[in-house]
Write a protein that binds this DNA or RNA. Structure first.
Lengths: 263, 263
DNA sequence: ACACGGGTTTCGTGTTGCGGAATTCGATAG
DNA sequence: CTATCGAATTCCGCAACACGAAACCCGTGT
């Protein structure tokens, strides 16, 4: 077999299992062990083990009734998440660049993770003083403008569930009282953007607006972050309005209906 | 390690590699070897091999410039194909049941594979005499009504490429001359449905209409199949018209613009 | 120049994946 | 009810090969 010649670091079991995964996935319908084994010329026993492993990991689904295999939830879930993220990133990027130039501050894009927000893109201002998140970082919902923007537009039940979790204290100014947080979230829902002042990182502030999908669900948020000293109230209000506007534009392109329908 | 206790047939390298795949995929952005290794508590060397293998298989993408990994084309392609198939199947199913009752013959749904059509669903008529395809089977394009319906609506270049391949002879009546096939395809393009009489299976016939996606590309086709003796010309014409109508309905729900725009 | 962090390569070890064969299971038939 | 076939599981002994520590390489920052 000349298969190994390519890359000395490929682990054969993994490679073969991936071929099984691909075959099953592309088959488009339930397929049985023997069929896979014959098609790929991998002995039945080995194929069996791969199918078991792939199923155990959720990448395949084993229908016990028919003893056949299909694409599993894990694959679908990963694909969905990825498609959603890249769609949002793609839609947001031009607007983010524009925003960055407009205010000459760093612009961030984050999606809602499980109880956190995860940065998926950011465009850095060309300034010496800046404290940045990195793409892939997670931050708590309640201590960031990005998170507060999302929280404010979450369905009531889910928001309550989020706020019931223990709230970590990132800085001395991090909001921890339920009352105060809820008051702010109502405010965010009214104005359409959230503000955070030194609650996540000392000396830094952030203004964020939510991005809603076609169901009106806040899947992501857009923000501008700056050192506290560089962002006076008047400028913050202007930035908030601008963020709201741009985020709404992205939401619209995700299929979200604006509050007041045009046409 | 209590990990193995579950299922004695899981092969560890595969399982661990899948955890790597999942982590990278869910990270939503480029991630480096060391980060993966630390996160999953898998030694650097091993993680390295998995990342190499996953990349070699196309499930991950290795950015040589930054030495980081992202979700690869293979995953996206599989996900796309799967989403498309299940969407079409879901949209078509009710109409297929209806059609089956209307004509009391088997109704088939197939997607375009690579040079073939692949059955992704079928509803069988409750009759004793029937010769069926099975879900997952592939048949040549040129010998089936499903395939001819798709061929007729393919972009010129791709159709030519298909017809340049050697054409297998399924029965004595299978069309093999380029001239005759192209004549028929023009006819199909005009009438909106394709007919096949004993060209794929002796004694069986089939009538098919294409399902077009939002770009007008024929991603799938719908058909009614019956023994030759049970489907006289007059009935076939009626079935063709009905198939065209129903397939167009499904196409519309896939976002395809009808030939004559309404509104 | 040096240390450091991250990626790649080497290499000897023994784990563990492999696959042939035996077994069970279930459906169909006689 | 027994036979038979085809498919999925289980068993088992062997050695291939995955493993991971450590060495190495290379670019960066100090």
């Amino acid at each position: 077999m000349a298969k190994t010649s390519e890359n000395p670091y490929v682990v054969q079991p993994v490679m073969k299992a991936l071929r099984v995964l691909e075959l099953v996935a592309r088959h488009g319908h339930e397929i049985a062990l023997t069929a896979v084994s014959k098609e790929l010329r991998i002995p039945k026993t080995t194929t069996f083990r791969y199918l078991q492993t792939l199923s155990a990991a959720g990448f395949l689904d084993h229908n016990r009734a028919t003893d056949r295999y299909t694409l599993g939830p894990q694959m679908r879930s990963i694909a969905r998440a990825d498609a959603s993220v890249s769609k949002i990133r793609g839609l947001a990027r031009p607007a983010m660049t524009e925003l960055m130039h407009e205010f000459n501050e760093t612009v961030n894009l984050a999606v809602k993770g499980n109880g956190t927000i995860v940065y998926i893109d950011l465009i850095e201002a060309n300034r010496s003083l800046r404290m940045q998140a990195r793409i892939g970082d997670s931050h708590p919902m309640h201590s960031t403008a990005l998170g507060k923007a999302i929280l404010a537009f979450l369905p009531e039940a889910e928001r309550q569930r989020q706020l019931d979790l223990p709230l970590t204290e990132r800085t001395g100014r991090t909001l921890l009282e339920r009352e105060e947080i809820e008051r702010q979230l109502r405010q965010v829902a009214r104005t359409g953007y959230a503000t955070e002042m030194g609650e996540n990182e000392d000396g830094a502030m952030c203004i964020g607006a939510p991005i809603l999908d076609e169901h009106g669900y806040p899947v992501a948020a857009l923000s501008i972050s700056a050192p506290l000293m560089r962002m006076p109230h008047s400028l913050a209000a202007k930035a908030g309005a601008r963020l709201r506007e741009i985020a709404a534009g992205i939401s619209a392109r995700l299929g979200s209906q604006p509050a007041i329908a045009p046409r």
